[in-house]
Design a protein around this nucleic acid. Sequence first.
DNA 1: CATGAATGAGTTTTCATTCAT
DNA 2: TATGAATGAAAACTCATTCAT
Lengths: 207, 207, 207, 207
Amino acid sequence: MLNLSDTESRILRVACDVFAREGFRNADVQVIADLAGVGKGTVYRHFGNKEQLFLAASKHAVEEVAAHIWKDVIGDADPDDVLANIGTTNMLRKIAASYASYYQRKPGVVELMIQERAEFRQSVFPTHLMHRAEHRGGLERLFQRGMERGELRDFETGPVADAFADMLYGSVVNGCLDGGHQHLPERVACAVEIFINGLACSPIHEE
Amino acid sequence: MLNLSDTESRILRVACDVFAREGFRNADVQVIADLAGVGKGTVYRHFGNKEQLFLAASKHAVEEVAAHIWKDVIGDADPDDVLANIGTTNMLRKIAASYASYYQRKPGVVELMIQERAEFRQSVFPTHLMHRAEHRGGLERLFQRGMERGELRDFETGPVADAFADMLYGSVVNGCLDGGHQHLPERVACAVEIFINGLACSPIHEE
Amino acid sequence: MLNLSDTESRILRVACDVFAREGFRNADVQVIADLAGVGKGTVYRHFGNKEQLFLAASKHAVEEVAAHIWKDVIGDADPDDVLANIGTTNMLRKIAASYASYYQRKPGVVELMIQERAEFRQSVFPTHLMHRAEHRGGLERLFQRGMERGELRDFETGPVADAFADMLYGSVVNGCLDGGHQHLPERVACAVEIFINGLACSPIHEE
Amino acid sequence: MLNLSDTESRILRVACDVFAREGFRNADVQVIADLAGVGKGTVYRHFGNKEQLFLAASKHAVEEVAAHIWKDVIGDADPDDVLANIGTTNMLRKIAASYASYYQRKPGVVELMIQERAEFRQSVFPTHLMHRAEHRGGLERLFQRGMERGELRDFETGPVADAFADMLYGSVVNGCLDGGHQHLPERVACAVEIFINGLACSPIHEE
DNA sequence: CATGAATGAGTTTTCATTCAT
DNA sequence: TATGAATGAAAACTCATTCAT
């Protein structure tokens, strides 16, 4: 996000790869330095310690995801126009599809997310990311609009946003095992479809 | 599952705690041995190495979850009778609720799952567990029945089972951050409700 | 002082040498381990960390000095008998001479004392040591006796003991530079003589 | 002593503080540069390396002590006049008192001396300093005069000067532990008094 | 002259694993 | 079979020194 020097972004790129491949604990800062073509001291000079390096790499990766989705779903258009044109449910489908396709191409970023959750007990991912992706209200706002437009049933937006994010998270984390990332788009699409339309034959919408 | 000596099950119990608290890499086998009241060599004699110890602990914990859910949902009754009595969707609700309540009480087990995914790139959790939990067909079988009974729409059972499991996984993993485990039941219940009934106002079931 | 295992005392002996030769910061624990013929881990297992190792080595050395002086000056006799036989001033001379001869033979111990003062801002040495050496009253007690016996002028014992110890300390520390330790006995003897008899021609004893 | 640029003397002043506080090994040249408000390269340009920087700082501090004592004891007067006026023993008392009061105010300088002794096995202090302080014969010369004037008993001046310096050194080094520097003047005064008048009741001057 | 980014040699410390008792 | 002392490979991190700007 902030201006990164050339050296810093090269280190960060390499760090993402190495941390994704080896995991946080297993990764050797020396290896990162070597692959980035700098001295180990340089890595420490710029990022302080291994932990901060990891966090920076993780943040960096996640911001790229957010930027990618935004570009994919909204592009240069006005978000409201897009929403008006395609409707809330299609918007959700597009977001999910964009998500899935990103991680299909870069499954390493999933490992980064998992490492962060495992080591630091912080999930950089779900809702927060979406928030950023929308640059305002975020997912909750999207659900809010959908309800106002009569496209979605009435729910509290918070829990629904959580549920959506949790589902994506679960799909991506479990879908990226043993090369399963190749089927990520289908896996996510199926989940989203159920999420939107429900599994049961006779919905109790009118309850 | 297999017959564990007294010593072994004590070690395993302690290992679960320590691995959950410290993470796999961070955990010290010496500490586990001390807390279990045995020598370090004894731990290695029984479990070979740290990795196998972790895997055994993880498996142990997950089997307890499965047993708990089975007892909670099925008890001593005949599974088919239970299903006939309460219906497929309520069965799903009960499974999810049981799950949530278990992890609410033992959030450490969630950390174990995450560690396993992070370190060994294996998710011990979702489908597999359900399989075991049902002691036959598992989740897929349940969905199969639901479709046959006309309670669920027609889907391929595999992807639906994945979607359900992914959703639970995501809810639990993200719901157990910063003491959030206290709200796990609500979080899971909301997700399941959406999953069953859908988010959209006008389902396209008939499309 | 406490029972040291064979391994521990070997490590300690080597550590004294290495710390004396290289200084605390400059010493490499690996070198100590190698010279002691044990693995580096063994050193850490027994002494925790470099700092504690140093402190243990320093304490060990100082206790040897104390034991040496005691044996030299008192031997197996009764301290009071010795004092009665030779008088207070000769006792001081003997203590100082024993001190000097010890450090003449083992100038490395002086470096240990200096390192401790420099790194940890604690002077393991002067009064304290004497205290231990006497196994009761210590230096102060000796001065007390001397005054009671009319051999010494009236002073507060505390400051006098400090002055005596400071003088010994200064002589030893400065006398062990550039191989000067060979002249340590003379240097110390001269200082003690002045200390006892004064430098001025017309003492103001009767003031 | 030599002409120092503004930058150099600022660096030196800061270096004294930092070395005194942290010790030689522990001190970080970067910190010195920062506190002096210059780049790290500038420090190296002016002083070559860390060791020379320390030695320069130490020398600087010691020269200040010497200048202080000189001013305190001699002022602008003629040294011989002062000596004639107050006598040798009082001169010694004044030197010691001035010494003590200086270190009482700047105990950091003591640490510098100790560091130098510990790291470089050179004692910048005792005799040498006095030499400089007197700008000729120094301490030895003073004792020489005292003997000629019949104020001091006959001794070899070298050993006596050593003894005096050792005693001051020991008092200052051991007196500056744990805030003990507040009592430095008393500690030193007592030692000097003993040094001058002797501890024993019946001096053997006439032996 | 001044600067401060880059470097990498050098050290401490940890801990899984072994094996003699 | 149980033990726990010994081991040493492995890694994080520091900081004096250099040198291009």
